[in-house]
Write a protein that binds this DNA or RNA. Structure first.
Lengths: 205, 205
DNA sequence: GTTAGAAATATCTAACAGATACAAGGAGCC
DNA sequence: GGCTCCTTGTATCTGTTAGATATTTCTAAC
């Protein structure tokens, strides 16, 4: 049945926790699911209209004139259960950091090192964030039936990030084994323009 | 300058290693960069045409009539270096597994456990793949200047996958702490249809 | 020699991200 | 009061991308 809209699942899921306006929906998805999911306005509005037509959500009077709050219906809840049970559509990978490192010989050792250090700093920042979040929620939301599921997703983030940190250190060690002059930009302080232009690709007789 | 086509970078990068037809390009991207990058035909052909017009690649006689092999030019190499130096455009996260687990109370404990076990099986499979790949390349490509960079990207896959495995075990432990009857589908052996339809959402007096 | 499949080119649709435009109401400021 | 800025809120448009699909030619098996 071709390609399914993933947005539908996220929207129904968010509405299953609380009725909201489209705007609040985006905020909720960004703030709560943000570590592993994202939606844009361009998707949310058409999806809400479609869901309304199918009777999966209902439009109610919003907090101000011209605004509407959306409420999930029984058929919407059933639909959500259905969507959650569908096989996972894997999103094709697109890791800009790894793409740059793969062509690291063209990019140059120095820039690779910078990218790696930056990645580690990012990872350490979000690791602290995950830890704080988990600690807070465990206290504030203790006993909530959703808590273990939420903690699961946070744990996923934590482990992923820890993996990144471990990897960066290994990658930096690998980088240290490469002579600087083997690159397109061997650490020259001026931008570039001297060593650039050839890299004979191969020359083993 | 708004949103840049990431495809351009991957295409130029692949052509920087070897001249290829568009078809071979897709194959190479899938097989070599597949662990962290993906491209589709729908992107590759227009991108090649644009790159040709800009003089970054040249079209040569292909291996059969009507087919063409693309060769990167000097200006293309320079362009690649430029693109690699651009700031990384982060792809918005979209993890279908975590989305399902987050709404795990709606999905049901049993299905969550299935998803987690499946994820671990996948992870173990690709972990073995990464290890084998790293071992092979270290021998076969020993001394190639690109080797350390390739090993870096493989190491990233390894660490990420190892993180998934560690996480799954933690998540399964969390799941075990949830009583089965707290869910929408408490382990009934028949598909569904009996317990489905309400879930009073809360009922603690 | 005919057919099965791989190599190869090409296009179309739907999904999606991000930017942007716009309106209305509240908060602070002069 | 009038001004501006910020937040809430709705809505659309463009460019990017994934994946499906149609079509042709070459190769190899039968």
């Amino acid at each position: 049945m071709a390609r399914r809209s993933q947005t539908e699942t996220a929207v129904l899921g968010a509405l299953s926790m609380q009725p909201m306006t489209a705007y609040a929906l985006r905020e909720a998805i960004r703030d709560v699911l943000g570590h592993f999911w994202s939606e844009s306005f361009g998707q949310i509005y058409p999806t809400l209209n479609a869901l309304e037509q199918q009777g999966h959500v209902e439009r109610r009077e919003g907090p101000r004139s011209g605004s509407s709050t959306f409420v999930i219906t029984d058929s919407g809840t059933a639909r959500l259960r259905e969507l959650l049970s569908e096989p996972i559509t894997a999103t094709p990978p697109r890791n800009g950091l790894l793409l740059r490192l793969f062509f690291g010989r063209t990019l140059g050792v120095r820039k690779c090192r910078e990218l790696l250090l930056e990645a580690r700093a990012d990872a350490e920042r979000s690791l602290a964030e995950y830890d704080g979040l988990a600690r807070n929620l465990s206290v504030e939301e203790a006993g909530t039936p959703d808590l273990p599921y939420v903690l699961m997703t946070i744990s996923a983030g934590r482990h992923g990030t820890a993996g990144v940190i471990a990897w960066v250190d290994e990658a930096l060690a690998l980088l240290d084994g490469i002579p600087d002059d083997d690159t397109a930009d061997g650490g020259g302080t001026t931008g570039d323009g001297d060593t650039v232009g050839d890299t004979p690709t191969n020359g083993e007789p």
